[in-house]
């Protein structure tokens, strides 16, 4: 049996309300809160980035897995906000957590699905018998251009998953990836903010790829939506994951546990992985979980998990995602937010 042996998520404590951003730009807050179902989002502290978020999430995953970090054979971090353009984020993480130096490390990039890619490859290494444990992380501190629609959603957070074959808490039963050249969202080298194709980001991108991966995954597994206790899809806003779930035949109750985006925002590479962490926090032995990520450019990774008896032993060993989401919040005004996100031009 191969799957997740430990998981952990981390969210910064700072928040900004969608209403605060809307008022700054003279936009109707209702259009955002009701239209996109986004109420507030996480903002990283001035001393937080993809690496520090990954370290916090992975530390919780280690606490749950209770394994020797030296036995981890690979560390992959998926993000579109790696602090260095050249120098993998994982090199810093392994030294912070006492992993390695006998370890394979790489940074992954694929817009919002870099995290699920890291999980996918980590899982495959263990399944191939190449190593005992592998760590896959999705984390981001993404930015939207000031006044752009993305500014309401781009947030910060991440989740880490240790894959292994002993004391598995969620077995991975099936995987499937679906990818095509779709220019829905991109950022050219050297640009500060990404560009997107507006309405083009919906049907030809998000919906097509998630539906493609999901349909293939259901065919492969010979399962149907009603077999699953939970489902989680990439969450660029509150509306899309519910809509794609509906199109595939999932019900609202299956999506609720992982639907954290209205209060968290889109944590990009951390989006569906943090949703999965929120589900694992409340899952019971035997539950089946359906997960499909989405990354612009574009592609989707799908996973089917079956929760094991081990889950109840690990759930309370580290903070749960909803506790981090609902408690210990510090709200920022737009000026503080602009300073935190270094949107203000300073003298060098």
């Amino acid at each position: 049996m191969v799957g997740i042996v430990g998981y952990g998520a981390y969210l910064p404590r700072y928040r900004i309300k969608a209403e605060t951003i809307a008022r700054q730009w003279g936009t109707d807050p209702e259009a955002i809160t009701r239209g996109l179902q986004l109420y507030e989002k996480t903002v990283p502290g001035q001393d937080e980035d993809t690496i520090t978020i990954s370290v916090s999430a992975a530390r919780y995953a280690l606490r749950r897995a209770q394994i020797d970090p030296q036995e981890i054979g690979a560390v992959y971090i998926g993000s579109e906000s790696h602090p260095y353009a050249v120098k993998p984020s994982g090199t810093i993480l392994i030294d912070a957590l006492g992993i390695g130096p006998n370890v394979h490390v790489a940074s992954y990039e694929f817009a919002c699905k870099a995290g699920s890619e890291a999980m996918y490859v980590a899982y495959s290494h263990v399944k191939a018998g190449e190593m005992k444990y592998a760590l896959g992380i999705g984390a981001d501190t993404s930015q939207g251009a000031p006044g752009d629609a993305l500014e309401y959603s781009a947030s910060a957070g991440g989740a880490a998953f240790i894959m292994g074959s002993e004391r598995v808490v969620a077995e991975i039963l099936f995987t499937h990836s679906y990818t095509s050249d779709t220019p829905d969202f991109w950022r050219r080298e050297g640009e500060s903010y990404p560009r997107h194709g507006g309405r083009f980001t919906g049907d030809p991108a998000y919906f097509k790829h998630i539906m493609g991966a999901a349909t293939a995954l259901l065919e492969k597994s010979k399962m149907s939506p009603e077999d699953f206790k939970y489902a989680v899809f990439h969450m660029p806003n509150g509306k899309f994951p519910n809509e794609v779930g509906k199109r595939l035949g999932f019900k609202k109750e299956q999506l609720e546990a992982g639907w954290i985006v209205p209060w968290m925002g889109n944590t990009y590479s951390g989006s569906s992985p943090t949703g999965l962490a929120a589900i694992l926090d409340v899952a019971k032995p035997g539950d089946l979980i359906f997960m499909v990520s989405f990354g612009s450019g574009a592609g989707s990774d799908g996973f089917i998990y079956r929760v094991t008896d081990e889950i109840t032993k690990v759930q309370d060993r580290a903070p749960k995602l909803r506790e981090m989401l609902d408690n210990q919040k510090t709200y920022l005004n737009y000026g503080e937010y602009a300073k935190f996100r270094r949107k203000i031009k300073l003298n060098d």
Partner: peptide, 16 residues
């Protein structure tokens, strides 16, 4: 906790 402490200017290393 593990945080970023400072950076060595705009092009230098990040110190955690």
């Amino acid at each position: 906790v593990f945080r970023r402490i400072q950076d060595d200017g705009k092009a230098g290393i990040l110190c955690y």
